[in-house]
Each structure stands twice: as structure tokens, then as C-alpha cells.
């Protein structure tokens, strides 16, 4: 409860402040000196070519990979003290879906952080987990083993689990990769709903054509930060060229999407 008060009274403090983050694997830098500030709750897309370090950036922020340098604060305090405010949707391939849990159990895992050591999820947590399942539209699948779901349904399980965390800021690693159009629509609607509820959602995204339609801010990343800010200001052909190099196919697609977006507004 305390966290709720803090987030609402500290409007001047940025939601997320990433300072000077550098990550290296085997003495080879993967992320170079990234500074990133997100001031108000919104939908943020992180884009960049393959191997640009998008997932690594998220994982470094979340403390999952060691940083060579840098610090991260969430609502003005070091990340470690603010874990309860943070939700996470990892890449779907990162877990073994044959693991013996059903959908409801998997979503219940989202409540474990709030429960703390030794306490078991009870009726209250189950009701909340079902509510989260309902929000992603798969309430009817709660008894299924997670391996029996389609890719899109598995992605929704991960989203429901993140919702169950009751976080203020969510990090999602390619939640729309490899899902069907229907699921993508559901996910996007959900993200927008979360943003409208005052949450910040930071999404690693692969599809440049939908950036302008989906996100408020965009982060262009290719090892170093190329640019970040409101989509209209930052998502320019010039910046895209800096991020992706001369691969014009992608650029033209994205430019086309931008123009379509502008026309519709």
C-alpha cells in the first residue's frame, strides 16, 4: 500500500531513470553507455536491429545480467528497493512450457512477490489471478497445462502473470513476436488500457510498421542509444538510418507507416 502513495505523490520524479548503463559479455560490449529517462507513465517501444541489445538492456535494468557500469532508479529509488513496482514479461522461448503447472498456477506466480517467503497463495490470490486471466481473455483455460496452449495463449499467460504482479512499470520482451493477429490486437488493447490506468509499459518490439500506431515514445537502440523520445519527434528516417544502417526496405516500410499514421490523425 505504501508504494501506491509514493508513486502518486512523487509526480516530479521520473518513472524510470537509466544512467550510463554498459553491459559486456566475454569482454565484448553489448550495450554501450545508455542513458534513458522516462518521465511520465506511457507506452514505450524499444526497437533496433537483431543483436542490438534490446533484450539485454531490459535485463540489465532488471538486474538479470551484470552491468559493467551504470545505475537504474525506479520512481526515484534504486531498482533493488522498488522490485514490487516492477512487472516482467520474458520472451516466450525462455521457459520450458512442458513444466508441470497449469495456467492458473503460472499466473499465481505473479502474486508470489507480494506474498513473500513461506506464505501460500490463497483464495484471494486465486480470485485475483482469475481476474488477470479474464483481462487477457483466456479465463476459460485456467485448468489447462501450459504446454497445451497455442503460442498466442502462452503469451497471454505471461501477460496475465505480469498483471498479477500489480506493478507500476512493466518490461515486456517481444510480447507480440510469433503471435497471431487476434492475439496481437488483444495485447495492444491491454497495453493501452494499462497506460490509461497510469502504468508505464516498456516493450521490446520487432515490427517497425506498427511502432507509430502502438507507442507514445520510442527508443532506438543499436548497442548505443540512437535516440529516444516521443514517436513523432524521434521516429524519423534519419534516426532509423542511424539505427539500422542502409537497409532501405525496412526504412521505406516504416516511413510509409508513419505517413499513413499522420494522414489518419
Amino acid at each position: 500500500m505504501m508504494t501506491q502513495v509514493e508513486t502518486s505523490t512523487t509526480a516530479a520524479v521520473p518513472v524510470l531513470d537509466v544512467h550510463d548503463v554498459t553491459v559486456a559479455y566475454h569482454r565484448k560490449p553489448v550495450i554501450w553507455d545508455v542513458d534513458l529517462t522516462i518521465n511520465t507513465p506511457q507506452l514505450v517501444g524499444i526497437v533496433g536491429p537483431n543483436g542490438a541489445g534490446k533484450s539485454t538492456l531490459i535485463k540489465a535494468i532488471l538486474g538479470l545480467v551484470p552491468m559493467a557500469s551504470g545505475r537504474v532508479s525506479v520512481y526515484g529509488k534504486p531498482f533493488r528497493q522498488q522490485r514490487r513496482l516492477v512487472g516482467y514479461v520474458p520472451q516466450r522461448e525462455s521457459v520450458d512450457w512442458d513444466f508441470p503447472v497449469n495456467v492458473l498456477d503460472a499466473v499465481l506466480m505473479g502474486t508470489y512477490g507480494e506474498l513473500g517467503w513461506l506464505r501460500r497463495p490463497g483464495r484471494k490470490q486465486k480470485a485475483w489471478a482469475r481476474e488477470c486471466l479474464d483481462q487477457v481473455g483466456i479465463a476459460d483455460l485456467e485448468a489447462r497445462q501450459i504446454g497445451q496452449l497455442s503460442g498466442g495463449q502462452q503469451q497471454r499467460v505471461f501477460l496475465a502473470r505480469a498483471l498479477a504482479q500489480k506493478a507500476e512499470i512493466y518490461f515486456m520482451d517481444e510480447p507480440m513476436a510469433g503471435v497471431d493477429a487476434a492475439t496481437e490486437r488483444v495485447i495492444f488493447e491491454l497495453l493501452r488500457q494499462m497506460r490509461d490506468d497510469g502504468k508505464t509499459v516498456i516493450v521490446v518490439h520487432h515490427d517497425l510498421r506498427t511502432i507509430a500506431g502502438y507507442f507514445d515514445e520510442v527508443v532506438l537502440l543499436n548497442m548505443r542509444l540512437v535516440a529516444s523520445g516521443p514517436v513523432a519527434e524521434v521516429f524519423t528516417n534519419d534516426n532509423l538510418r542511424k539505427t539500422y544502417g542502409g537497409r532501405l526496405g525496412i526504412l521505406e516500410d516504416a516511413g510509409e507507416a508513419m505517413r499513413a499514421q499522420e494522414r489518419s490523425q
Binding site: 538486474g63 538479470l64 516492477v86 520474458p90 506466480m109 512477490g113 501460500r120
Partner: peptide, 22 residues
């Protein structure tokens, strides 16, 4: 028995467990 929930989440998805602070 005591750490059933903790083991479950770490074995299933250790990164998620890490973000939660386990």
C-alpha cells in the same frame, strides 16, 4: 514443503523469479 512456491517459480522461470526479488 516449506519452500514449494519458491522452488516452483525459480525452477520454472528463474529470470522472472529474479525480477520478483527471489
Amino acid at each position: 514443503v516449506l519452500l514449494y512456491k519458491e522452488f516452483q517459480v525459480v525452477v520454472f522461470d528463474s529470470e522472472f523469479a529474479g525480477v520478483q526479488g527471489w
